[in-house]
Design a protein around this nucleic acid. Sequence first.
DNA 1: TTGCATATTTGTAATGATTACATTTGTATT
DNA 2: AATACAAATGTAATCATTACAAATATGCAA
Lengths: 141, 141
Amino acid sequence: MTPSVEEISEHLLKHNIKPSYQRIKILEYLVTKRNHPTADEIHKELVKEIPSLSKTTIYNTLKTFIETNLARVITIEENETRYDADISDHGHFKCDECGSIYDFRVNIDILEPDELESFKINEKNVYYSGICKKCISKEEG
Amino acid sequence: MTPSVEEISEHLLKHNIKPSYQRIKILEYLVTKRNHPTADEIHKELVKEIPSLSKTTIYNTLKTFIETNLARVITIEENETRYDADISDHGHFKCDECGSIYDFRVNIDILEPDELESFKINEKNVYYSGICKKCISKEEG
DNA sequence: TTGCATATTTGTAATGATTACATTTGTATT
DNA sequence: AATACAAATGTAATCATTACAAATATGCAA
């Protein structure tokens, strides 16, 4: 669950990315936190450890990760691009109350829409929104 | 398929929105074009007919439409909020080649993720991306 | 090791979508 | 017509993202 720096480095190398200090830290953040952060949230956290860390580096690195399929973009909400190092098919739920984003397992392949028969599908995203369990019990309690 | 101004007005009134000239035009655009436009695209088109039309009005009106469930937001791509007057459950496919967005019918309800059992789900979105039929045949031809 | 070429990071400035807000215009009612 | 209220407009501010040039680090050849 919490991979070592060596494992993170190998993960990068497998995708033909040189494991620089910044890249390791950013991927480590994504993989261990699993919190679907924005670029700004990553920066705010990592700049504590790497004071020189620039926001441009965050954006550059994330772009590299997306291109090499190390991470994917979550655009569940307008005005905030979020990132996820979990590449497997899964859905995202955003709570309109507290803003939390939850992962949920879902078998997207059973959908098979007829109208896309001759289309080449590269990516599938399922986004739900509403009120999460925690916020519901808070309102009731 | 192409509703009259009267029908558009009624549609607005049913949702408790006063049918001003601008609102009628913006809703008419969404309903007849069905092209999932950005706020800017709507403005660019309608300003030809209404030279005084302000972008703020576009944003205000779209916000009103969203709040009253006359339209919904499509956030299939980062950096572009798009709008859709079709409220029914359906998926969206974005072609990475030509940028077109296609609607497709899909029975989202069969997914029923266990992990969201105690969650209140208000909205469900299914976004696919890849290469559309047209672009595939273009590449082959 | 030194020097050179290249890749990566950094900082600043620009861009572009969206929002805030104050002003103006339009509409309805008395 | 006078007033009150709603809607539309224009300008300025905000904020995420990108562009770009300069600085730094890395790898490799001599």
